[in-house]
Computed example of a mutant assay.
Amino acid sequence: MTKFRGCIDIHSGQVKQIVGGTLSDNDSTLKTNFTSTHPSSHFSRLYRENNVTGCHVIKLGPGCDEAAEEALKAWENGLQIGGGINDRNAKHWIDMGAEKVIITSYLFPDGKFSRENLEKVVKEVGKERLVIDLSCRRRENGWWVAMDRWQRITETEVNKETLDSLSAYCSEFLIHAADVEGLCRGIDEDLVKKLGEWATIPITYAGGAYHIDDLKRVKELSNGKVDLTYGSALDIFGGKTVKFEECVAWNKDQE
């Protein structure tokens, strides 16, 4: 059943909400919707106290490890961690208290999918501890995985064949619609519907949600098979259109 999942996005050591398409090596292009005065642990405790499970911490570039570790310590074995995860550090983050690790760019050296790299991470942490991030950008003929802070399009299409193949190696998928991430202009309904059709394991969708009714819409489009993350629209991240308490209430209603 569709539920609300939380996020803690960390950039340069601070919890932020960023317009996804502006994230690159050149900070002059960066558009930030919100920068928190609270430490990352504040949001971990908020999610823990309200039983919002399956939340993810994403490190957006360098200088984020300390804040990420602080978030994990505030809710040990309760949060997922992503951003620069590979076979050499995946086990470290599990040992630091992450429930699961999320991998993206490491799976796509030179923009091409590497099953060898995937198997290396699975060997380190196991399938049940692994989330595969297939965040993507829309093209005329579908959606394609985007890596390196969503700036580089890979050769991997997000479709039923891809999800079926990769689901044998992970416990769930995380999929940001990078084209609408942080814009608060609506979800990619076509993508959500397709994800509901393709889903065989849990999927969390992020990107564009700006109203509490988006939870109902995602539930309808995906037949309850896809969960939803709010970012910039949420009041705890400076948003004005979605209240955290409404999201918590939604989850309780679904139980």
Results as ranks from 00 to 15, higher is better:
F4V: 09
F4N: 08
C7W: 03
I8S: 08
D9E: 11
I10W: 01
Q14P: 01
K16Y: 01
I18Y: 00
V19K: 08
G21L: 09
G21S: 10
T22Q: 03
L23A: 06
L23K: 06
L23H: 04
S24M: 04
S24T: 12
S28L: 09
L30D: 02
N33Q: 15
N33S: 15
S36R: 04
P39K: 00
S41N: 01
S41K: 01
F43D: 02
R45L: 06
L46S: 07
Y47D: 05
R48L: 07
R48V: 00
E49M: 02
E49C: 01
N50T: 09
N51H: 13
H56N: 14
V57N: 01
L60R: 14
G61I: 04
P62E: 11
G63H: 03
D65H: 00
E66K: 13
E66W: 01
A67E: 02
E69A: 12
A71Q: 00
A74L: 00
N77K: 11
N77T: 03
I85T: 04
N86D: 15
N89V: 07
A90K: 04
K91Y: 10
W93H: 03
M96P: 00
G97H: 01
I102P: 04
I102V: 15
Y106Q: 09
L107N: 07
L107M: 09
F108S: 10
D110E: 14
K112S: 14
E116D: 06
L118R: 08
L118C: 10
E119T: 10
K120L: 14
K120I: 07
K123D: 15
G126D: 10
D133L: 08
D133A: 11
R137S: 13
R138M: 09
R139T: 14
G142M: 09
W143E: 03
W144R: 15
W144Y: 15
W144P: 07
V145Y: 03
A146E: 11
D148E: 12
W150F: 11
Q151N: 08
R152E: 12
E155L: 10
E155S: 14
T156Q: 13
T162V: 09
L163N: 08
D164E: 08
S165Y: 13
S167M: 03
A168D: 14
S171A: 15
E172H: 06
F173L: 12
F173A: 12
A178W: 11
D179F: 13
D179E: 13
E181W: 13
G182H: 12
R185Q: 15
G186Y: 12
D188Y: 12
E189I: 14
D190N: 14
K194E: 15
K194L: 14
L195S: 12
T200V: 13
I201N: 05
I201S: 05
P202W: 07
Y205I: 04
Y205V: 03
G207T: 04
Y210D: 11
H211I: 05
D213T: 12
K219H: 14
K219E: 13
L221E: 08
K225N: 10
V226F: 05
Y230R: 05
G231R: 03
D235I: 04
I236D: 01
F237K: 00
T241N: 12
K243E: 13
C247K: 02
C247Y: 03
V248G: 12
A249M: 04
D253Y: 00
